[in-house]
Amino acid sequence: MIESQAKATLRRYLQTGREALLWKLDGLSEYDVRRPLTPTGTNLLGLVKHVASMELGYFGGVFGRPSAEPLPWFEEGAEPNADMWATADESREDIVELYRRAWRHSDATIDALALDAPGRVPWWGEASRDVTLHQVLVHVIAETDRHAGHADIVRELIDGTAGLLSGNDNLPSQDAAWWEEYRGRLERVAREADRG
């Protein structure tokens, strides 16, 4: 496969993950996009903030192309995990626009460099720090999809909305009664298996 085709395929997968992640915010209140729904505080807007920060790091400094975006949550003395939630002063629009600016910066790096362009990930172990653009693209796609999956579960916990994208949820077409019976059946099977 020629390089331009390979890049196009990788970018398509990256963009699909990006859009899936942002779709999880649609139609929710400020409370719901910030609401921590796991014991570790996982929340929708925090996932977007984290993935935006991740893209800026991987497609920025790793390849000597740092962005001008201030990321105070990564500065010396910043609160641990500060990239995983939005403060009251950081609006949804601020975080979404940060993510879109990260896309533009990432896409410019992808366009400018060959897939075998070398980079260095300072936060990885010494044995794996030296990378190529291809490796980083695959890594960021995997991370984006992982976090989009987290967002899918969090969104389903908030209001029952689930699936890949608006208009393409990638789920069986069943009504609420079917899903309720299905979940009940899974619960019964789990209890039976637990009893041995």
Rank of each mutant, 00 (worst) to 15 (best):
G60A: 01
D94K: 07
L14P: 00
E192G: 09
Y13F: 13
S128N: 14
Y13C: 05
Q135R: 11
R120H: 12
T161D: 09
F74C: 03
F59H: 01
H139L: 11
R191C: 05
D26V: 04
S173C: 11
H134D: 11
E126M: 03
D32M: 03
D107W: 11
E180W: 07
T9L: 15
S53V: 10
V96N: 04
R12H: 13
T144S: 02
G149H: 02
Q15R: 15
D145P: 00
Y99V: 01
I110S: 01
W124L: 14
T16I: 12
A82L: 11
E192R: 15
W23S: 14
N168F: 14
Y13K: 03
N168S: 13
T42V: 07
A78W: 08
K7D: 08
G41C: 02
A68T: 12
L157G: 08
L165M: 10
G41K: 06
A177W: 12
A162D: 03
A52L: 01
R12Y: 08
Y31T: 14
L113E: 04
L14D: 02
V140T: 08
W179V: 06
N170P: 01
Q174D: 14
P118D: 11
Y182K: 13
T161Q: 09
Q5F: 08
G17M: 00
A86M: 05
A8Y: 07
V136W: 09
L37D: 11
W179S: 12
E143H: 13
D194K: 15
L137V: 03
A82P: 04
D145G: 08
L71I: 14
D159L: 04
K7N: 05
A78H: 03
D32L: 03
A78G: 08
H50R: 01
L164R: 14
L165D: 04
G17F: 00
S67M: 04
W73N: 05
G119K: 01
A176L: 08
M84V: 13
T144E: 02
M84C: 13
Q5I: 13
G184Y: 06
W23A: 15
L71R: 10
E3W: 09
M84H: 13
W85V: 14
L165Q: 14
A114R: 15
L165I: 08
G57F: 10
A20G: 06
D32T: 03
P72M: 11
A177N: 09
L56W: 02
R188I: 09
E143P: 03
N81G: 15
T144L: 04
G17T: 00
P36L: 09
Y58E: 00
G77R: 03
D107Q: 13
Q135T: 10
M84Q: 14
L21S: 04
L137Y: 04
T161F: 09
H147T: 00
L45A: 05
G17K: 00
E79V: 11
Q15L: 11
I141E: 00
N43S: 07
T109L: 05
H105D: 08
W178A: 02
S106N: 02
V96Y: 13
G27H: 06
W85C: 08
E156S: 06
Y13D: 10
A176W: 10
W124R: 10
A6N: 10
L56C: 00
T40E: 15
L115E: 02
R120P: 01
A82G: 06
E75L: 15
T9F: 15
W123C: 09
A102Q: 04
A8H: 06
V62M: 05
A190I: 07
N43K: 02
V62T: 12
E156Y: 08
D130F: 11
R188G: 00
R188K: 10
P72I: 09
L157D: 06
